[in-house]
Design a protein around this nucleic acid. Structure first.
Lengths: 158, 158
DNA sequence: GTTGAAATGCTGTGTAC
DNA sequence: GTACACAGCATTTCAAC
């Protein structure tokens, strides 16, 4: 867990960015190989990575799963309009839901933007009826279904 | 690279799901520790992970970066309406843009849903003016700015 | 699926510069 | 930051079950 969690930028140099780029491509690369690639000693690379984890620049290492192949054939994006006074409560509730993969508070009329992953239509309907609609202050929900994933998170610029 | 890339589901059992869950929490856990946690031999665990990478269930391993701390203070979501005949061209073009972190083709009037990460307002404006608006067939763009990230991808259900 | 074993490579730690 | 060394683990690849 990172020690500092205030959302301020951390000063990163070109070497840090290069390390991040390589870790982004392969999160399980050994420190030894990473050090060879960026032409720095292993200890120095480990120290930099450790520092970036501590400062929260690197949040964690994870496996990227293909939802479709894991049996989640339905991806949907929701814009949820919530009465402001219930926003926090609704957001915390939805965050805990395993079907919700991402949840953001946005500017604009539909404050909450949500991504959901479902096995099928039946499961999505159950989610809407039993989990989303019963929440307090839900004023409107619009839903768009994913047709094709052109690009997905991996490899940010920096 | 996965050998099969047709988007069909792969049969996963409870042990596979458990492995995915642990790899999701810590993508750099050693096979040895993973094997201890799920009470299976190292060789069996490695074989299962290897099979899931080959079949494309596990797309890759990666580092999750906090954009804010990496100096990308502005996250924005765009709904882009494109003339259908230019959709493919526009999508391919935008996919290559380093500022675009996610790009999806959705149902609904605004076919393309896009997430962008920018250092600041100035950079976003430059992206809009120089990269997005000049593309062919762009009919409308609406943009929402991220206020707060409640939940972000990590740890899907399965 | 399991265990065991051997060679090789990786990690954590410490020292000295 | 580098270089080196050392012990302890981890990984790869066998073989045998």
């Amino acid at each position: 867990m990172p020690k500092q969690d205030h959302e301020s930028a951390v000063q990163l140099d070109e070497i840090d960015r290069h390390i991040i780029q390589l870790l982004n491509k392969n999160g399980r690369i050994s420190f030894t190989d990473l050090a060879k690639e960026i032409k720095l000693s292993r200890v120095a690379v480990q120290a930099r990575i450790h520092a970036m984890v501590e400062s929260g620049v690197i949040e964690c290492f994870t496996a990227v799963i293909n939802p479709e192949k894991a049996g989640l054939h339905l991806s949907a994006f929701f814009n949820v309009e919530v009465e402001p006074k219930y926003l926090q409560e609704v957001a915390e509730n939805l965050s805990k839901d395993p079907a919700v993969s991402s949840l953001y508070h946005m500017t604009g009329p539909s404050k909450l933007h949500m991504h959901g992953l479902f096995k099928d239509n039946r499961e999505m309907e159950a989610f809407l009826e039993k989990r989303l609609y019963p929440l307090p202050g839900i004023m409107s929900v619009d839903c768009q279904i994913l047709i094709k994933r052109y690009k997905s998170r991996i490899g940010m610029k920096l």
